[in-house]
Design a protein around this nucleic acid. Structure first.
Lengths: 191, 191, 191, 191
DNA sequence: AATGAATGAGCTTTCATTCAT
DNA sequence: AATGAATGAAAGCTCATTCAT
């Protein structure tokens, strides 16, 4: 029935893992972690419930797997324009934030939801805090180099702004005009 | 020996209702709707499980009860300075937003969490959308009167900013310096 | 508030008892014992739940109260034509059975339902058995006096027939033609 | 080590389904639908509570499953003597009714109880009505062929008689002499 | 690697009954 | 006599997890 070579096994394993991760991300993001049962994920992924526990120790671990997977992907995606001017770097950052918002909409939706349900998923708090501090440091540096009066304050504001835009985009979805606010942002920070 | 008067009953009813509403708000906000069982709410409120169903038809109805109650209170709280100048009005609005954030922290936490779980609580979507549009219209008007170039864009930004600040305050809690960002905001918009 | 003379008390007591008994009979018969809550009975009767427990020790006791009340009424209703011929007595019995079926439809409905749920209401079994034996003895006597070949067998048949008619009338209600079968019965037994 | 084949799973499923159906029929018939909890059925069937919901969507669906199962069995059981004379057909019918009453006593008990609780189980009403009309048509035909004066009336009577016998047998159980009344019936209709 | 039948703890909800007034 | 707020046991049901194959 099932005899395969070790290499084939590994390929099959990775495929199944992928199927499960993708199905789970989609469902968690669109219906909410609690509203989605393990059975539903298995069905959506086209595998058995039992198999899921072969790859992930629990429903919680599956969630963590999704996040880890996404962070890995994200890390390999953004290339920082180290040689550019501060203004160009800020511009690139804004571009990237809006691009990521659109391209990884589902993932953003999930992360945002989890961030707010931190009480239940404590590993999220660290991720959120790290991201915030990273952005704050980056923006402070960029605003500082551009000679802003209150670079720290401006960094706080821009960081909150990005989170607010994410939140509103997530809630209003297609009713939210990302381009309009991006234009306003560009006008304010890049001219 | 004669039965309690209707007024006496009403007093008792309102007291019990309050106990349940308060306990539920606290728990829902801090632990999440799904993570809190009706039993837990009853225990926290110091009443029996069954009594909850005397006042609310279901766990969902209890949630709706909390929201309705909060909206009622909020309405009676904020008095709009109709006679003031646009700049003073903006100042008052900022003050109110930050004040409300601190004073009704628990309620804000709950509303934010629910907003993101819209799939499950559709009545929330309407509330969120209404609030957003209300703020957008207000800010556009205020910026317009002050002669801003792009009042609509500025309104979008300020609205997103408030949501971002709420979100970050909710996540970081005591680690978040509300005063710092309020000062930066004041500097930017009121000087 | 409530001071009354002892006689007035008794009148009020009987009125309240009646209200409760009537409401309970109606509801039990039409919706089933289990489907009707004590609250619903109280509401339907226009009294408080607590008052019900003033007159009946439990929901079961209330049911028993209904039955006792009905048996009392039934007893005082039928006057046996002791002087008539056997055939006339049989005729009178048939008339009475069909009349009672129509006039005490609700009560019959309840009794039939309870009879079949005996396991839960054991006091019913005795009532059913007593009624059966009473009819069997009566019919055997009447058929015997009319010179039937197998008076006992005929009595068994007629007794089963009455129960079958009751059952079908109860189930089919207005779709069941009581007159048609009464005519057939008359033709068979009285000509 | 490979997964069970679909056929093996199907066998296991059918076995468990049977266990649950049998236990539920027994309990529902003897104690009444409302008096039996899902937990009790599971215990009696020797399975877990949760498993029941793997096979039946609800307690109600389980009841419907029992009925469907019984109707299926019943259909395959009775072979109509199409070639025989009307009198022999009537005889066969009487035999079958009494045989079924004894052999499927539990099922009859349940059906009768449900018939009377129609308010709650509307699918029962259709079954009861269909059975009644079927018998009435059959008997009318048989009596007509035998030259009875009032074949329709006789059919009504016989149909009621069968229901009455069922009812009395159900209530009195071992105290009821099925043979005695069967003999009387035979004497009346077959000689 | 893969299956899905089976489990059982825990959930929301109902309702007969009690009791202070 | 009368009220209805309050109780808590028990119900139906869900679902993450285990396990034999």
């Amino acid at each position: 029935m099932c005899p395969k070579s070790p290499e084939q096994f590994e390929v099959v394993r990775q495929q199944s893992r992928r199927l499960i991760l993708d199905a789970a991300l989609r469902l968690f993001a669109n219906e909410g972690y609690h509203a989605v049962s393990v059975s539903k994920i298995a069905t959506e992924a086209g595998v058995s419930k039992g198999l899921m526990y072969n790859y992930f120790a629990s429903k919680d671990a599956l969630l963590k797997g999704i996040i880890d997977d996404a962070l890995e992907q994200a890390e390999s995606e953004f290339t920082w324009p180290a040689e550019a001017s501060p203004k160009e770097q800020l511009s690139a950052t804004i571009d990237y934030v809006f691009l990521a918002l659109e391209q990884h909409k589902t993932m953003h939706r999930l992360l945002m939801a989890l961030t707010i349900q931190m009480h239940e998923f404590d590993f999220i708090h660290d991720i959120a805090l790290a991201k915030l501090n990273q952005y704050k440091a980056l923006f402070t540096d960029l605003f500082s180099k551009q000679g802003y009066d209150d670079p720290e304050g401006e960094a706080l504001i821009l960081s909150a702004l990005f989170d607010g835009i994410s939140l509103q985009y997530m809630v209003l979805d297609s009713d939210y005009d990302l381009n309009a606010i991006k234009n306003s942002l560009t006008k304010r920070y890049l001219t």
